[in-house]
Design a protein around this nucleic acid. Structure first.
Lengths: 223, 223
DNA sequence: CATATAATCAATGATTATATTGAATGGTTG
DNA sequence: CAACCATTCAATATAATCATTGATTATATG
């Protein structure tokens, strides 16, 4: 191979390796997973991850240099968000690979969620069809700001924390499909447990909003 | 957040970070890019990358531990291949992000390929339509073993090294669409240059075979 | 302007990743 | 079985990454 070609390839793969490197830390993957829901401040992210602010800031700098996140300043706070849809696609591809290929992922997930679920979750496609048929209520149990940043078209927002005292807002005849951040988020599972215990018909969507969006299914953002 | 939930998330994201880490080196990305075409021996990969065999073997071990590649043994040689389609999807997502988001990638590509292309390449969808219309010849200019491992349905194989002496196999009336390994591979570009210089009508497909396959377009493997 | 808040920076030591070298392994060939 | 080939392993030195700490910057508030 020619020298010029070798230099070209080295430079090019170096750039792509930088991208992979930016995601090569558990905290940074978790940050992307969270930011895929909605923008957040550094302090907020730090408390969600249970880490010192300086450490989270350091990781955010790595993601920023890799152009994976962007900043919006508001007063003395900075809100980070994912730079574009391709960032979530990388994380999603990694997640899919891990789920299908790594026994360890399966083991960890199964041992945490074992026996907590009686009913099979719905896939995105299944829910999409059910919505078209008009026979379900879609329930978003994430925090309100994440709902506002984007939610499944037609979904109702009741954050998991408020669910118990807002049960009367939900119908008892139609089936309720709850969803939250993604396949490893516990909120929708908790909601289904609570709802079925109270006599509602409820099931869980197996994916989160970013996946729903990535499938090209309809999303609404509150202006 | 509960302690158990924190431990669960840490364990889970740790697994996914391992996957990203496995790709966090330019040589390993290049290896995946090559292996996405066809299986190869260690020695062969080492000479393609211009690196010592021991170094390539070391990188292959990293990919193997991450379950991204598998081995087939044949005599005293070992042939590595990508473990499944999801591996290429991760690399493709990284590549797409880099292409759309990183100015540096654009600069490197442009400075290497500047002025070498007179004609716009075809997209996968465009070629797919042209094939249905039946008015093009699809030309695979990769090495023969890569063609055998999988090629665009109906494509003709003339490795770039043999192109000059096999020109008579190609028609002069129909347009020839050449393709190779991927957007950064030079073979298809060289083929188009050669063919147009000889009076053929020729253009390039902008993607490589693994991308074509990922788009769900028809692929044939030689048995 | 002083104080408080949010975020970043800089320096540190500890850990982990990397390339290189040469030796060891496993299989093939004569 | 000896010689050989392809690959891996092991050891080492160098470089990069990481968490932590405390200092610094930037903005808001009184």
């Amino acid at each position: 191979m020619s020298e010029a070609k070798r230099i070209f390839k080295n430079q090019l793969y170096e750039q792509f390796a930088r991208v992979a490197k930016a995601l090569a830390h558990p905290h940074r993957i978790e940050l992307i997973d969270l930011l895929a829901q909605a923008e957040r401040s550094v302090e907020d992210l730090a408390s969600e991850l249970g880490l010192p602010v300086a450490n989270v800031s350091q990781h955010l700098q790595v993601l920023r240099i890799a152009q994976m996140v962007e900043i919006r300043r508001e007063g003395s706070r900075k809100f980070y968000r994912v730079a574009d849809g391709n960032v979530f696609e990388i994380w999603r591809a990694i997640r899919t690979f891990g789920e299908e290929r790594l026994a360890e992922v399966d083991r960890i997930v199964k041992s945490f969620f074992s026996d907590r679920e009686k009913l099979e979750p719905l896939s995105g496609e299944q829910l999409s069809r059910r919505i078209e048929d008009g026979d379900v209520i879609v329930l978003d149990v994430r925090p309100e700001n994440e709902f506002n940043a984007g939610h499944i078209e037609g979904a109702v927002s009741i954050p998991i924390r408020d669910l118990k005292r807002r049960l009367k807002e939900l119908p008892r005849k139609r089936e309720i499909i709850a969803y939250c951040r993604g396949p490893y988020c516990v909120y929708a599972r908790e909601a289904v447990t609570e709802l079925t215990a109270r006599g509602f018909k409820a099931r869980r969507l197996e994916i989160g909003l970013p996946d729903w969006k990535a499938l090209g299914l309809p999303v609404t953002a509150t202006r």
